[in-house]
Simulated scan of single mutants.
Amino acid sequence: MSATAQIRRLTRYNAWANARLFQAVSELPEGAATAARPTLFGNMVHTLNHSFVVDRIWQAHLEGRPHGYTALNTKETPGFAELRQAQAEMDQWYVKYADTLPQDAHDEAVAFRFVDGGAGTMSRADILLHVVNHKTYHRGWVADMFFQAGVRPPATDLPVFLREAG
């Protein structure tokens, strides 16, 4: 399978896993998603918001425009329904971006500034891989919070996606 096909598959996997996780969060008992937890972002929804903010930052880098963020999360957390819709739209943006990115643009260097002001450069393909990997990492954090709430999290592993995608 080509690198282009792999990146396209991974953006679809990411969208699938996010949708699955958001659905499971929506089915938790009242207050479980925003209950204080011993984690960096304090609860499930604020952790999901961090992941969304980071997606927006990398989207801006890929588009060559400023993102306007000064931190990796927002002080105020949007409502769950609003965040869920925004994440679904963002996931579709990444799928479309991967689908339309020509093979010869995958290795193109993108210069950017990290939120802390430091300079960075990554290829477009590496940025897409990072976005997927970052989301996988933080879905794991949310899965741990499911266990803290006494609930089994949904399976969001790549092999499950591949089985379900056929």
Rank of each mutant, 00 (worst) to 15 (best):
A81S: 13
E76G: 00
P66G: 06
A71N: 12
Y97Q: 00
M44Q: 09
L83W: 08
G42W: 05
T47P: 03
Y69I: 04
E89Q: 15
I57H: 07
G64Y: 11
K75I: 01
N43G: 08
N43I: 05
H67S: 08
L72W: 09
H46E: 01
R56C: 09
T70Y: 02
V54K: 05
R56I: 04
V95D: 00
P66H: 07
Q85G: 01
G79S: 09
K96L: 11
G42Q: 07
R84T: 06
N49Q: 13
E76L: 04
A71G: 09
H61W: 13
N43H: 15
Q87I: 14
R56D: 08
H50A: 04
V45A: 02
Q92T: 07
G64H: 13
V53A: 11
E89V: 13
W58F: 15
L72G: 11
R56M: 11
A71T: 12
Q87C: 11
R56Q: 15
A60K: 10
P66I: 05
L62I: 04
Q59F: 04
G79R: 12
V45I: 14
M90I: 03
E63L: 14
E89G: 05
D55P: 03
Q85S: 10
T47C: 02
L48F: 11
F52P: 02
H50F: 03
H61V: 02
W58E: 00
S51D: 08
R65S: 05
G68Q: 06
Q87E: 13
T70E: 12
F52A: 06
A81V: 12
T74P: 02
E89L: 13
V53D: 06
T70S: 10
L40M: 01
E82Y: 03
D91F: 11
